[in-house]
Design a binder for these strands. Structure first.
Length: 324
DNA sequence: CGTATTTGACCCAT
DNA sequence: ATGGGTCAAATACG
C-alpha cells in the first residue's frame, strides 16, 4: 500500500510537460504577457514539486530533506525566537527511527514556495487549481504577519488531506510563503486547464474577495478578507490531465532550463519575479519559520529547480517500476 | 439558507 | 511552560 501513487505521479509529470509545452508556445508568441509566462512557470514548478514530493515520500520514508534556498531579495532573517544557527546544513543521514516495524508515520510531503504578489494590488495572480478552506490563523513568534492555515475543501467529502500555510514575509510584503503539506487526493484540479488559467490576465485585484471570485471556476480562497493585510495564495499544479502518455517524446529539458526563470527576470518588469524557488524541508528545524535556513546562501533561483533538491540521494530512481 | 471565514479555546509536541 | 496547529461556535458572506 505504500506504493507510490503512480497515477498521480504520471499525471503530475504529464501535466508539467504540457505546461512546459504551453510555455514554449507562449515564449514564441511575444504577445503573451510576462504574467502569463510566470503563471506557466509557476504551474510547471508546482507540478514538479508535487511529483517530487510523491516520489520522495512514496518511494521511501526518508521524509524530510532540505535543500535550502532563498531568494535574492530576502535577507536578514530577522530575529527568530531562537537562534537561527540551528543548522542549515544537510546532515540527514542520521537514521531517525530505525525501527521501521513500528507504525508508519504519515510522512506527508512538505514543501514551501515563495510567491510574489503584485505590489500594487497585493494579489498574487491566480490561485492554484485547488479550493482551500481556511481553518485557522495564528500569529507566529518572530513574524509580524499572521499565518493562515488552509485545508483542502474536500477534506471531508473526499478525504483529501492536503493543507497549506500561507504567511506573508515580514520584510517583503510582496512575498508570500506558502507551505504545502500533503498532496491532493481529491478529484479537483483536474479541470484546471492551464490555458484557461493563464489566459486570464490577473489584473483585477482590487478586492481580494472579488478577485477570488472571478479568478477561475474553482474557487481559491486564500485571500485574506481583512483589509489590513491581504494575503493571497499561490498556485498549484493541476493534476489529472486528460491523458497520460507514458512514453511521450523527449522532455525538452533544455528549453525548460533555459526559459524557466528567464522570462520573468530578463524580460522586464523588474518587480516581477513571480516565482521563487521552493524548498523541501523536514522537521529538524524546530523553529517553524519558513525562511529560517538562510545559511544556504546558494540561491539557485536562476538555475534549475531541481538543482536544489537533493532528491537524487534518496530517490529510488533505479526503480524499474516507474513507468509501466 | 447554505457555506466559508473568523477567532478564541483547546490540544499536542517541544 | 511555550509555541504551533487545529477545532468549532459564532459570524459574515453570497
Amino acid at each position: 500500500m505504500e506504493n507510490i501513487d503512480m497515477k498521480s505521479l504520471l499525471n503530475e509529470l504529464t501535466e508539467g510537460r504540457e505546461l512546459a509545452k504551453q510555455l514554449q508556445i507562449h515564449l514564441n508568441v511575444s504577445s503573451s504577457s510576462h504574467k502569463t509566462r510566470d503563471v506557466l512557470i509557476d504551474k510547471i514548478l508546482n507540478s514538479y514539486d508535487q511529483a517530487l514530493s510523491m516520489l520522495k515520500y512514496g518511494g521511501m520514508s526518508g521524509e524530510t530533506q532540505q535543500g535550502g534556498l532563498r531568494i535574492g531579495t530576502l535577507d536578514s532573517p530577522r530575529s527568530l525566537s531562537g537562534s537561527p544557527r540551528s543548522d542549515g546544513s544537510d546532515h540527514e543521514f542520521k537514521d531517525h527511527d530505525n525501527k521501521e516495524g513500528s507504525k508508519k508515520r504519515k510522512a506527508m510531503p512538505r514543501w514551501t514556495q515563495k510567491v510574489q504578489v503584485d505590489p500594487g494590488t497585493g494579489v498574487e495572480g491566480q490561485g492554484d487549481g485547488y479550493s482551500w478552506r481556511k481553518y485557522g490563523q495564528k500569529y507566529i513568534l518572530g513574524a509580524n504577519n499572521p499565518r493562515g492555515y488552509y485545508r483542502c475543501t474536500h477534506r471531508h467529502s473526499q478525504g483529501c488531506l492536503a493543507t497549506k500555510q500561507v504567511q506573508r514575509s515580514d520584510q517583503d510584503p510582496t512575498i508570500l510563503e506558502v507551505a504545502y503539506k500533503g498532496m491532493h487526493t481529491c478529484s479537483q484540479g483536474a479541470n484546471t486547464s492551464p490555458k484557461t488559467a493563464i489566459d486570464q490576465e490577473p489584473n483585477m485585484a482590487e478586492n481580494p474577495l472579488q478577485n477570488q471570485a472571478q479568478l477561475l471556476d474553482f474557487q481559491t480562497k486564500d485571500l485574506d478578507t481583512k483589509l489590513e493585510t491581504f494575503q493571497p495564495l499561490n498556485t498549484n499544479p493541476s493534476p489529472s490531465s486528460s491523458r497520460i502518455n507514458p512514453q511521450d517524446d523527449v522532455f525538452s529539458a533544455a528549453m525548460m532550463e533555459t526559459n524557466i526563470y528567464s522570462p520573468s527576470i530578463m524580460s522586464s518588469e523588474p518587480s516581477y519575479f513571480s516565482y521563487l524557488p521552493f524548498l523541501m524541508e523536514g522537521d529538524h528545524g524546530s523553529s517553524s519559520n519558513v525562511q529560517t535556513s538562510e545559511s544556504n546562501a546558494k540561491n539557485i533561483g536562476i538555475d534549475f529547480p531541481f538543482g536544489q533538491l537533493d532528491l537524487d540521494s534518496n530517490f529510488p530512481f533505479d526503480n524499474p517500476k516507474y513507468f509501466p
